[in-house]
């Protein structure tokens, strides 16, 4: 799932500027599941913007809406009436949804209300961990289902570095919490599976051009194209 965090309120205010009619647009898929940008959160931000405008004596109309998926044209059609009436749209979707919105309504000012941060999984309620780097060439089959691309701080592809100590990485999260060494996890799980030999296989350098280093990617499923 794509996860995102809401931008600080003053950043959003700066993006909205002097606009008189604001539409806060949520997206009811990934960002709703990570409690950042669904309809509920869109309503909360709209209320905050109205309170702030009221406090400072500004006449600002703030509405909210949400699309089932902001990243698909068809769902954007369903909210186009509200978008048409707004001077600025604050999108709470991930970067994909925000860009779809900006492209679909190209004459409108569409601004982000969130920072999209990762492809993660909910570890437990309201806690998400990064799990995929969308590198374009999955190695999970050789790494016992642990992704070294995003779970190793250095994205090493051939075993741990010297900074791994008792299963923990030398890097800490910004909150100061310890991070499991991905290569330690890989080794432990390969051992449990009796597949330690995979650890000693020489891997050629990873082709990073299949990931975001190779420029914008495009995928076409020929067999599914309309005829």
């Amino acid at each position: 799932m794509i996860t995102a965090e809401r931008k600080p309120f003053d950043k959003i205010l700066g993006l909205v500027g002097e606009s008189k009619k604001v539409l806060v647009a949520g997206c009811d898929t990934c960002v709703a599941v990570c409690l950042t940008g669904g309809e509920k959160e869109a309503e909360i931000l709209a209320s905050e913007l109205r309170i702030e405008a009221g406090m400072n004596g500004r006449e600002t109309e703030v509405e909210h809406t949400s699309a089932i998926r902001q990243c698909e044209w068809e769902y954007l059609d369903l909210i186009s009436d509200k978008v048409d009436q707004a001077d600025v749209v604050v999108s709470l979707a991930c970067g994909i949804g925000i860009q779809s919105m900006a492209e679909k309504f190209a004459t409108k000012l569409v601004v982000p209300g969130v920072d999209t941060n990762m492809l993660g999984m909910p570890l437990e309620h309201a806690v998400w961990l990064e799990r995929c780097g969308a590198c374009g060439e999955c190695v999970l089959g050789e790494t016992a289902g642990v992704c070294p691309v995003v779970r190793c701080s250095k994205s090493l592809m051939n075993g741990p570095c010297g900074g791994s100590h008792e299963g923990k990485c030398e890097v800490k999260t910004p909150e100061g919490e310890e991070i499991d060494c991905a290569w330690h996890l890989i080794w432990e799980r390969l051992k449990a599976q009796g597949r330690e030999d995979l650890m000693f296989v020489d891997r050629p350098p990873k082709n990073w051009s299949k990931g975001s280093s190779g420029g914008p990617r495009k995928m076409v499923r020929v067999e599914a194209r309309p005829v």
Binding site: K40, E43, I44, S47, E48, R50, I51, G54
Partner: peptide, 11 residues
């Protein structure tokens, strides 16, 4: 009680 109910009261 949810966040929005408290905000709506303030609003």
């Amino acid at each position: 009680l949810e966040v929005i109910h408290l905000l709506r009261a303030i609003e």
